[in-house]
Design a protein around this nucleic acid. Structure first.
Lengths: 124, 124
DNA sequence: GTACAAGCTGGAGTGCACTCCAGCTCAAGC
DNA sequence: GCTTGAGCTGGAGTGCACTCCAGCTTGTAC
């Protein structure tokens, strides 16, 4: 798979894929005779996982650390598990906050509806 | 309340409070004889709400828009309700994604635990 | 009455995470 | 054989959301 196809299938731009490689988030892929990147299918799952970490608020530096550990193989299993557990705790808190904010939104929307009903028909 | 106390009670830095005023997120407060900002208690609730919008991913530009509508009074009730409803939809999606990622974390942690048990006692 | 903490302004600087650009090579279709 | 599109590199530029700074005034404690 060339970089353009990876871009199409992951939603990341070609520039971002090369940038991720430069900072160590994606392992440097093989090159063909012309010096172009040729990716294996596994990159798709990995990029998807990175996006999930990203979307749930893990910082670049931590994702880079995780990626580096992953490339070092089985000796880093424990460290990686600990990182995931720590991130899981962060997500749990965010979930909690989001649920609270959700409830607040519901509350505010209800209040606005009441106020709108009052102000939109002042001629009772 | 002087700006330092607002900072202490909201967790935002003094610089950030002044910055928020400059960009229109916080209404310019009264000034005392020496020209210093004197805030009412209502700023605390407002800043707290801003933080919730922030933490749930609303962009600065949208928060500024909401703040501007709020300062315009009752004629903007409908617009504000619509903004909150839109943001509520965004939060709902994020909640969903977070729950999925949470499940994935659980799954991965379990896998790591299995692998660790295998690699840590290779001498069975 | 003076040291010092807290406040003020306008403007510059920072960190993050990309995003774009110039100038090049290479492969395929007409 | 030449145009076009995809890819390459190193490095510069961008947008967001603050954060810091210099140089000033003011209020409080000793």
């Amino acid at each position: 798979m060339m970089i353009g196809e990876v871009s199409d299938r992951t939603g990341l731009s070609v520039d971002t894929l090369r940038f991720y490689e430069k900072i160590g988030l994606i392992a440097p892929p093989m090159r063909n005779d012309a010096g172009r990147r040729v990716y294996g299918n596994d990159v798709l799952g990995w990029v998807g996982f990175l996006e999930q970490l990203n979307a749930t608020g893990m910082k670049q530096a931590d994702r880079i650390l995780y990626a580096r550990l992953r490339q070092q193989g089985d000796s880093t299993l424990r460290a990686r598990r600990e990182m995931l557990e720590a991130h899981r705790a962060v997500i749990r808190e965010k979930l909690h906050l989001m649920q609270q904010t959700m409830a607040l939104m519901d509350h505010k929307v209800a209040i606005y509806e009441t106020l709108e009903a009052e102000t939109e028909t002042p001629q009772i």
